[in-house]
Amino acid sequence: MRANVASYDVVAPETLAEALTLLADEPGVWTPMAGGTDLMVLFEAGKLPTGRYLSIHGLPELRGITVDDDAVTIGALTTYSEIRDHAVINADLPMLAQAARETGALAIQNRGTLGGNIANASPAADSPPALVAYGAELTLVSAAGTRTVPYRGFHTGYKQMDLRPGELIHSIRVPRRPASEGWVHFYRKVGTRAYQAISKVCFAACARLSDGGVAEVRVGFGSVAPTVLIASALEAALTGARLDDAGLEAAVAAAARHEVAAIDDIRSTARYRTQVSENLAVAFLHALRAGG
């Protein structure tokens, strides 16, 4: 272990109100910590800034999954395991279940949380592309009250997000996308191995088809830009398109290639990420044609 454990203070309030009060009273002092699956890795490597951490892991107000007719609402501290095993999520939001299943492996899924994954703001996280593709909304809570923001646009730059001082992610609301209403889901995590892998490219797309055309589509990429990437050009190329349009494949490929901003790093190359992004976008089109 490369960190000095005596240089880290951690408190663990028992209620959300207590946590929010602490955040409001001592602004900028406390860094929230959920399941620890990201922060503890940095800690081990000696790369976690020393200071004061607020463990919110035990807060009951931020846990659990509720379902209504239109949407599934997931408490920020819901674990991947709970998401992976949830029947409605598996049925209507299968990409979210798959992202949870492919994050780390079982022991990580038992500890890691969806809210923690969002707030850690890693561009390589597995759930954010699915949340982009599903058009999720975040409810944020602070001592001053709550507000709701669309997930698309929440991340504003590398490790930057629209989270105000003293604010915590409360829950994630995801509109249901049942296949019976014409929704097609396409998720592909390209990691270094089957499990215990960090994404080199992650692709999530959800489209509604009607009359041989694409009525509505949202696409998110992971690991190809400083944040989760909203694939606007790809969405524009597909929205309203006829699936039998012969030029569509080239347009999709070009849009994907154009909008990813991949880099070389320890896990892969920019060339690989760009080429695979293009391949997956085209494969998504093929899936739409097969399913449409």
């Binding site: 191995r193 089957a194 215990q196 960090i198």
Partner: peptide
């Protein structure tokens, strides 16, 4: 996490 040996699934 960055030097990849096979898991039971690989």
């Amino acid at each position: 996490t960055n030097y990849i040996i096979p898991t039971a699934a690989d």
